[in-house]
Design a protein around this nucleic acid. Structure first.
Lengths: 252, 252
DNA sequence: CGGTAGATTGAGAGTCCTCAAGCTCTGTGG
DNA sequence: CCACAGAGCTTGAGGACTCTCAATCTACCG
């Protein structure tokens, strides 16, 4: 990992130069809306791998859009057991629940070095008022994130270890590929086995044994921080996971 | 269970007579907004216990507000394993994810006879445009529901059977109490052990044994379709569940 | 009085967990 | 150049929690 600033990808000063927005993976916005988003953004921020972007206990905090890097939402029990709720990838909006929550809070931690666009929390209402489109987009993003948590809950509740692993690998590969981050049949994969255990609701040891078994069956390969799906069909069948293609998401 | 119409509580013709809105459990809206909501509503609907309100496969469908009764969102694997994602109680908005989803769909089924207010799906955008407040409220509801799924995921992933049961009983009791549905220290509890197993990610048999054990320890009692928390403190400690008091929710 | 839904119980089998080491790789410092 | 430390990955063994299979029991209904 690089020293701050994190690698070559900090947020550009202007949204017009935004690599995400110009990647084609997101729905276009009008010039007007983009100008508003840019004015709505209060600053940009780089944080190193492993840092806490939002505390599990404290409400408040800011609203972010993840520009580069990986992060995750999580909850912990008081004896330390941790459950990752979902992974956050570039373009994901961070901190929306804190705005509304009943105190059912979660923490957010950076997996890699990350770059963020920062938005003031109390500007959200104005966004809804002045640009209903953007409000609608934000609801879209919230609903999509809920859908991801739904999938994870189905895994944790009803899939066995191998099925959970297969599901996770498929899911992350698809999302990254959709963002244009797949190269030569592989994607960057910065999470370790503890992260995988924590999102799947498994122990570290069992996660290791399951990953190894699937690798030896030729289903995937994780090496040097990259993931290859060696047999996507088999993974899909194992996970019983046949979602429709991803749609372009809004980007705020 | 009654024959249709379900019991004495169908949606009133006018929102002004809405029992939910007048219960004090929801945030007030302006007369203007209420008039819009009433015009936005395309009809009302009663459905019997056990009916499917939304199919797991088909997108589309309508948007509902649950007026009376219980329902749940669920997903199933192709071999029939079912995971309930969360329970829906009066005031909950139903079908929002279908509007946005990437095809990551879920089904919705009525537990009891239910009454619903029906909204046209394609009117949602107009709602955001004309009443940004209401758009904001809908986002609030989406974020709250996600928070509930987050909690369930923490349970399924990291709590053992007894802790999961304790968590669920506390959670449902709190929500019902907040709706003013607690009477003499108990609430209506129309779900069976299969439902409980399906939301907790446990087998029916193990759910039964766990419920029985907690009952014999004097923690709760379920009888004649009602739930009593006999020892809320102990349940709370067991579940490691200490959320802030519930806030009033918006009602659309 | 049979039929059905739901709750209960017992027994045996598995999946998954915890404990405990050992291994590999990388970066640091002498 | 090598010893050392730390993070992450691997492996083995035993035990605990949960699952499946198979019945039985109760309450309610036609």
């Amino acid at each position: 990992m690089d020293i701050l600033p994190p690698g070559p990808v900090s947020c550009p000063p202007s949204c017009a130069a935004c690599r995400l927005r110009n990647s084609g993976a997101f729905t276009p916005v009008s010039a007007d809306e983009m100008a508003f988003i840019e004015s709505f953004r209060s600053s940009t921020l780089n944080r190193p791998a492993g840092s806490t972007l939002m505390h599990e206990q404290k409400p408040g905090g800011k609203l972010f859009t993840l520009y580069a890097g990986w992060a995750f939402r999580y909850k912990t029990l008081s004896d330390g057991r941790r459950q990752i709720l979902n992974f956050l990838l570039p373009g994901d909006l961070i901190g929306l629940q804190q705005e509304f929550s009943d105190g059912a809070l979660h923490g957010i931690e950076a997996v890699t070095d990350v770059s963020l666009c920062v938005f003031p929390r109390d500007g959200l209402w104005e966004l809804f008022r002045r640009y209903p489109n953007l409000g609608y987009d934000i609801t879209w993003l919230a609903a999509r994130e809920e859908g991801m948590v739904d999938d994870n809950l189905l895994s944790a509740g009803r899939r066995n270890a191998a099925e959970r692993v297969a599901m996770l690998l498929m899911h992350l590969y698809r999302r990254l590929e959709h963002l244009g981050l797949a190269q030569d049949g592989s994607v960057e994969f910065p999470i370790n086995q503890q992260h995988i255990a924590d999102i799947l609701g498994l122990s570290l040891v069992h996660t290791n044994k399951t990953l190894r078994r699937l690798r030896q069956l030729g289903l995937h390969e994780i090496r040097n921080g990259r993931l290859w799906l060696r047999n996507p069909k088999a993974l899909q069948r194992l996970a019983d996971y046949y979602d429709a293609p991803l749609r372009r998401a809004p980007l705020v």
